[in-house]
Amino acid sequence: MTVLSRPSTGPIYLDYNATTPIDPAVTASLLPYVSDEFGNPSSGHHYGRKPRTALAAARNRVANLIGTSGQRIVFTGSGSEANALALCGVVRAAAVERPHVITQCTEHPAVLESCRALERNHGVDVTYLPVDGEGMVDPAELTAAFTSRTVLVSIMSANNETGALQPIAELARITHEHGALFHTDASQLVGKLPVDVVALDVDLLTMAGHKMYAPKGIGALYVRAGVSLEPLIHGGGQEHGLRAGTENVAFAVAFGTAAQRAAAALEAGEPERLRRLRDRLHDLLREALGDRVMLNGPLRSRLPNTVNVSIDGVRGKDLLAEMPGLAASTGSACHSGQAHPSVVLTAMGLSGRRASSALRLSLGRWTTGEDIDRAAEMIGSSVLRAARVSTV
């Protein structure tokens, strides 16, 4: 895959898990569908033909990225909407009195808040599984949580803060043995590592365009054949009858192009390139700061682009404020500006002090070795400068 030039200048960007820049090739692909090819894809006349064809092609490209067919892809307005459709759709379609759902305590807020809404508004019972010190779910804990009323398990594929990769195929197998459906929020995984929904044996899988170089405002839900969902939005029957409303053709085309480019990047070895840069960043920080740098999450079973470290003696929020030349985060972008430590890190058993000292550094398509060297030097210098000031 040809890697185009960096889309913008400014601070070093190491916050790809929050959102990705739109790939220039993706932008180019969507422009005709906000200008000349403006037609409604449901229209039978001339102006509807190209949008309809483009929408079908985009659906197939997204499907190809995860090893399925376009008939199984439902475009949504975001990953959060796809999660809500999966959770609420299964529960509302279930022929079970007081359905039971199982998830984990470190899920993205899009899943956790959907579960809480189901508890609050629909009388659903929800079990929130704990995680261990690396953020991993114990399959035995899942097995023990099932009841005769369990209709759905929802466990994210890759954690957005630590990059921890859950054993999705094993968890899906256990779920099916107990007669329930399995959903995974794979927004952080798809495009970063190969994904095959057949091998994973999942029933529902969430994707988000803005996590893979497409615009914000487009997501998708994979729905396995035979899975019954109650739509959140009723109307004209678009998206296989699961999401009414005239389709956002331009952003669907963008998502399709992004999926096509992601497949090419995976084939070209992008995960290994990012893994090398990620480990180089971690090693440079350890060289500069020694044992003050503590990795949060698993060493091996994590996304190739993600390193979450706590640096003893300095709050992550304060450190970032001292480095205007680096764009990174202390955790999920959905919690930015909040004073309390990361829910994910505290659920892993980390102290409030260590959780407050965390930095999430996530790499992507335009990250270079020079970026990594400069970021490591910037972080190391800022930490050492803060230590000197504190001793004066």
Rank of each mutant, 00 (worst) to 15 (best):
N305Y: 00
R302N: 04
A84I: 02
M323G: 07
R292A: 14
W366T: 09
S8H: 11
L289F: 10
G44A: 08
R374H: 11
G70W: 07
E267P: 01
P215D: 09
G297L: 12
G77V: 14
C334K: 13
A18P: 02
R353P: 04
V62K: 03
S78R: 06
Q166W: 13
A18N: 01
A262Y: 05
A94V: 08
V91H: 00
A117V: 06
T246G: 10
G79D: 10
N121I: 00
A252M: 06
L165P: 08
R353D: 15
V62L: 13
L266Q: 01
A82D: 12
T367V: 04
A288H: 11
L277H: 06
R243V: 07
H335P: 03
R273W: 06
A288N: 05
L303W: 00
S390H: 03
K211Q: 12
C334W: 15
L55A: 02
R385F: 13
L285E: 06
R98M: 11
D201R: 10
G135N: 08
T246C: 09
V34T: 15
G256E: 07
L384I: 14
K50D: 01
G39T: 14
L326M: 02
M323P: 08
E37M: 04
F255Q: 09
G236L: 14
V137E: 04
A86S: 11
A18S: 12
R385E: 15
M136L: 15
V190H: 01
A58F: 12
P304G: 00
G79Y: 08
L152Y: 09
S42P: 00
G331L: 10
L65A: 10
A208H: 07
A63S: 10
C105M: 11
V223L: 03
R280Q: 15
S69N: 06
T330D: 00
S78Q: 10
A358M: 04
L65Y: 06
C105Q: 10
A328C: 04
H45I: 10
R72G: 03
L359A: 05
S114I: 06
L359I: 08
G241L: 09
G316S: 11
M212R: 07
H210R: 09
P32A: 07
L181Q: 01
R52M: 08
I168V: 15
N121C: 02
D279F: 09
G349P: 08
S332V: 10
L320V: 08
M136E: 12
T106W: 05
G179A: 07
Y33V: 07
L142D: 04
T330M: 02
S5T: 14
D291E: 15
T76N: 01
A144I: 07
A244K: 05
A208E: 08
T330C: 13
S5L: 14
L31R: 13
E161Y: 05
T346L: 10
G135D: 09
L285W: 12
R278V: 14
A387N: 03
R120S: 09
R360D: 07
C115K: 02
E370A: 14
